[in-house]
Design a protein around this nucleic acid. Structure first.
Lengths: 135, 135
DNA sequence: TATTGTTATACTCTATAACTATA
DNA sequence: TATAGTTATAGAGTATAACAATA
């Protein structure tokens, strides 16, 4: 059987190359999209939690959130319970931007999985999610 | 269904994190292992071909091959038919180093796929290879 | 003392352009 | 003129350490 790592690396490269221009057309970087996606699923209780959720460095997340906040896509608010923490959530504009990008990305994803039948795609996505969760 | 890109990114990060120390124990970087793996499957007719095969930049491949050649793992020879080209192939030492690393990497891969049953693992690996080939 | 957010710094990785030798 | 290999340089991405505010 082929190298797992080599196959994964090739797929990720292809996917990123295909997604990058699509996201750019929506005014988003790859990491910006990752952050919006995570926040769309659930608001972050802290920037640290968000960084961990998307696998990004906490120090680089700051500049990213600065830009997203300036564009009015997210809002940071101090947590009254722990004034060191900032909660982060999407604005309505942020939700709309994410939804539009998500639809476009889904098209790219489906194209990537083109070699698989519809049933295989469902099976593949499910197994991929399980492996990603590690459970 | 979960984000394809997010799942893939998480898996690749986990895999690289787990593989890196294993490869280092065998005296190899990730890219060195990728090069050896490709050469183990088939010698390269040129450095450009090798770079393309593993998705690496041709200008960075040079330094990598310099190191691998100095360690006696690969040999570069001018192609008599086109003296601009260098063929690249593994030495017996290179084959041995790759085989040892491959066995250790396989263990890490199987651990990553632990959430899947044996039958699912075979199915997943097969589908992954098909998607990677894009056919 | 430990943690969140932040800034600054250094380092690695990557992309680009230019050079040589061959074709 | 174009291509394989090479080198050098600039840029982007990343990691590390240190700081202020809060716990």
């Amino acid at each position: 059987m082929a190298e797992l790592g080599a196959s994964l690396a090739r797929i990720v490269r292809r996917l990123m190359k295909a997604e990058e221009p699509v996201l750019r057309a929506h005014g988003l970087s790859m990491w910006a999209y990752a952050a919006l996606s995570s926040l769309a699923a659930q608001p972050a209780t802290s920037q640290l939690a968000l960084a961990k959720a998307i696998g990004y460095d906490k120090t680089r997340l700051i500049g990213l959130l600065d830009e997203l906040a300036q564009e009015g896509l997210v809002v940071r608010e101090r947590d009254p319970a722990d004034r060191r923490s900032h909660t982060v959530r999407l604005t309505p504009d942020g939700e709309a931007r994410h939804a539009a990008a998500r639809a476009a990305i889904r098209v790219v994803e489906d194209e990537l999985l083109g070699p698989l039948s519809a049933a295989e795609q469902r099976s593949f996505r499910a197994m991929l999610a399980r492996v990603a969760e590690g459970s």
